[in-house]
Design a protein around this nucleic acid. Sequence first.
DNA 1: CAGGATTAAGACTTTTTAATCTTAAATAGA
DNA 2: TCTATTTAAGATTAAAAAGTCTTAATCCTG
Lengths: 143, 143
Amino acid sequence: MLANNSKYAITGLSHIMENSVKGKKTKVGEIAERHDIPQAFLSKILQSLTREGFLSSKKGPYGGFFLTEKQMQTSIMDIVKQLEGEDFFSNCLLRFEACNSESPCPIHFLLIREKDAITNKFRKIKVIDLLHNIPKELTESKK
Amino acid sequence: MLANNSKYAITGLSHIMENSVKGKKTKVGEIAERHDIPQAFLSKILQSLTREGFLSSKKGPYGGFFLTEKQMQTSIMDIVKQLEGEDFFSNCLLRFEACNSESPCPIHFLLIREKDAITNKFRKIKVIDLLHNIPKELTESKK
DNA sequence: CAGGATTAAGACTTTTTAATCTTAAATAGA
DNA sequence: TCTATTTAAGATTAAAAAGTCTTAATCCTG
């Protein structure tokens, strides 16, 4: 499970992504209001992403957050790692510090495939993919 | 990611399981020491499992925790649900309260297969399975 | 160049999770 | 029945995560 940090970050990036492809910047307040996220907290999170180069911002009127083409290609694994800590994905689901094949936790081998699948998916998903997140069969027909 | 609660609980049950098949009871101190878990905290967790019927205990000298045949068949999903809350598995990885196909979070469809696989695995794994957690190829040859 | 709009930074507070401490209750064995 | 051993229960404290507040810096517009 991800912490609130990552949850808000991904939601925010998804929103900023939508606007960025239209060439628009996004104000924190807009994201906070639409997704019901505490604004000051979201600010801090987006600021930290900006500091680390995952996101761009501009102050002042008509300012806001936006993503460059290059930033849209960031793997969300890198973003989660920055927010949750470098070893988020190397730790096992039970959060044992040193869980691996040689010194496994009680469920290491029982869940290793599923764990790896999740890790690989996070590696593959890029910020730009947060845009196309609804499968065709659901967008084409209604109900 | 599971909280410490569940981590300690599964570690503890795994240890108690080992002793239970030999007909032995397990003292909290023994588990705490072997796995480096704060003893008083582990006590509380095991006590709560006992209160809910997932585990058995006996006070006094030669007492300790143990598992009945029936308790060994408990799905660890039920145990995690009790410790982390009923909707642990119905929430998505991003912990959105209401994330489903109709109102998905930004990564709902990107991770739905992997998420479901994990959930099903937790449903299938029983306490008794915590005993046999090392694949044959690793126990047979060394190095 | 003044004023409002916006992000930046960091101190502060609240809430939740993790862990400890204290006292009680049960029970085996001498 | 006394004592040592063990779980039970709940109050308390500590640490971490989540969230708020305040002030500064930037920069567009008139």
